[in-house]
Design a protein around this nucleic acid. Structure first.
Lengths: 347, 347
DNA sequence: GGGGCTAATGATAGCGCAAACATTGGGTGC
DNA sequence: GCACCCAATGTTTGCGCTATCATTAGCCCC
């Protein structure tokens, strides 16, 4: 099958182009990679041969010969979590502008799978890597160190980054949310979390520590599950927390906006008044959160910028421009909306 | 900078491993690629050498020597549109299970950029390609044809697919939505669309044709914009349509759930009763749509399955298993919820 | 006007791996 | 006991490209 094909059955090579243009192979290579080094007339002749043959360079051969792949490896925990979309967009935008390709893998939130995926990425000889968080296995860290390439860890701020780091403090964000919710008059604060990956745990730790510091911590008001987040789950956990607290809770910090929206929609169905009977705050600031009624308080994170900065750091290092600071705190902002007591006008 | 590095400064090669294990290079290659062909003792010895050196195969060299890259190229119009996430997840799940890597590019909804990106993908010598829709440039089609590899076009059903095709009829979906909305008692139907890519245009065409067939078409009730969709935009377009129709419209088909949710939230703020004064229907069936109050009618599409099927088709062809049918209609389902007159119980 | 430059092009070699073919050393059948 | 076969391992070669080192021709300077 597929034997018969128009024109030559095999992909054209540099040598084919060279023959047609009546030049040496290396000249064709230069027309493609260093056009300035070839005289305009010859360049044009070669270009015509390239077009005629529909020549597309073989990147494997190029990588092998030059030890440069033009690939940046990126590892994220989940393709379905919208949060990573914006980051990815930032990475792709910057990488694309510099003619780097992005090889993307999904670790399903598992360090072991991450290790396997990083191995896969490394086998492609990327020139740099962007990975999520700091939960790598020892073996994974060793591979990365051995590879000796620029690495950026994103999403969170690490104590001891492998190399470079762009993120923000989830702990501080959780802490700030607690303080703000207390300031708006909540007295019985609860926490709802799902998936419970490292970053969610940090948010929770900050939230809990703040409550403890203010002597407002009630362990029974903390509901978590390893299940992945969803709006449906947010509704369920909301009900769980209500019954666990016998309805005493008057404010809930949900570890992300999925859960928070689920809680908000469920509270509407249960006829619980928001924010008068119940305050809600999410995390990640989805677009929906700003427009739902009542609008949802959340923590805004400049995710696109985080991706951009991570990619820029890498491009700079690859171009020997150096990097001012190996660690960048991209920050966050707690945004109080109508789902919080001291409500502000929409948007 | 970065000169000093632990252990050998260069990545270990097959030959290095071979020397340590005191075997030939090809034996090491076999341990990795065809373990059954090596005796267990030797295999073990080689494996130890691999572990000791932290050897990671060089995929570029492997691709060059074997003419197999293990890469599937995937091209989607947008990284930020959630719709493609589920499809991608399906593709990644199937590809990963068969040890194929996915190289993903983003065309920003531009056929010209798609052409450039396809060229980039082809330079990586993928073994197959998954691309979105049927709007390729002539040059792009030519490249793909010349490459002579399996290609699956996804998201929509094409009249003349380049090769294989998995999708559904956006036209039919739009048509069905119109009929269903009319059946629930709407009389003055409007359409709101953004981005207006090929698929949105097909939905609109189906919707419009159905209205025309029922003699219910009013061109003034059609509001579109080339801007990308968002919830915010949904609210704006909703207002536009209301004023364009002097408030006469009693049902709106939004080309996606972003716009529809924006319209729904805006209608709440304007105190327009849904569905009694206004019916709404979106497209894509986001999770939010099922849980928002009132819940939003939408068109459900099995996106994850679409990704899975596309990847499976490719894997089958690559394994010479053949494919039953080169075109697969994955279908859709119009789901009426509380935002439609003949409302059904939530969920 | 000759030494020494640069710009433009070419020849050669080798990147790391696997395909293809070669070799070895038992087993197997009768 | 001998022809045959297969399993296990090795040798050679080349995939398509670019780094490196020639080579040539023009050119500048004093």
């Amino acid at each position: 099958m597929g034997r018969a094909r128009k024109s030559s059955t095999k992909r054209a090579t540099l040598a084919d182009v060279a023959k047609v243009a009546n030049v040496s192979a290396i000249t064709v290579s230069r027309v493609i990679n260093q056009p300035g080094k070839v005289s305009p007339e010859l360049g044009q002749r070669v270009q015509e041969a390239i077009d005629m043959l529909g020549y597309i360079p073989n990147q494997s051969a190029s990588s092998l010969a030059s030890a440069r792949s033009g690939v940046i490896g990126v590892s994220i925990p989940s393709l379905s979590n919208v949060v990573f979309n914006d980051v990815l967009r930032g990475i792709y935008d910057v990488a694309g502008a510099s003619d780097y390709k992005v090889l993307l893998v999904d670790t399903h939130y598992s360090p072991l799978e991450e290790e396997k995926m990083v191995r896969t990425l490394l086998s492609q000889s990327p020139e740099a890597m962007i990975i999520t968080g700091g939960d790598q296995t020892r073996a994974c860290e060793r591979m990365l160190a051995k590879a000796g390439m620029p690495v950026v860890q994103i999403m969170e701020l690490l104590e001891q980054p492998l190399d470079m780091n762009v993120g923000f403090s989830h702990y501080q964000a959780g802490y700030d949310v607690a303080l703000k919710m207390l300031a708006t008059g909540c007295n019985q604060l609860g926490f709802v979390g799902a998936r419970m990956d490292a970053r969610v745990q940090q948010r929770m730790a900050g939230f809990v520590d703040a409550l403890r510091a203010k002597n407002k911590l009630n362990q029974e008001y903390i509901v978590t599950t390893p299940e992945p987040s969803s709006i449906a789950l947010g509704g369920e956990l909301f009900r769980s927390l209500l019954s666990a607290s016998s309805g005493a809770v008057d404010g809930i910090f949900c570890c992300n906006d999925d859960l928070a929206l689920g809680a908000l929609f469920e509270s509407q169905r249960m006829n619980i008044k928001i924010p008068t009977e119940m305050s809600l705050c999410g995390f990640n600031d989805f677009e929906t959160s700003a427009y739902v009624n009542p609008s949802l308080s959340s923590v805004h994170v400049p995710r696109y910028e985080m991706g951009v900065k991570a990619a820029e750091m890498i491009i700079n290092v690859l171009n020997d421009k150096g990097v001012a600071d190996k660690t960048l705190d991209i920050g966050f902002e707690v945004i109080l909306r109508q789902s919080s007591r001291a409500s502000v006008p929409p948007q």
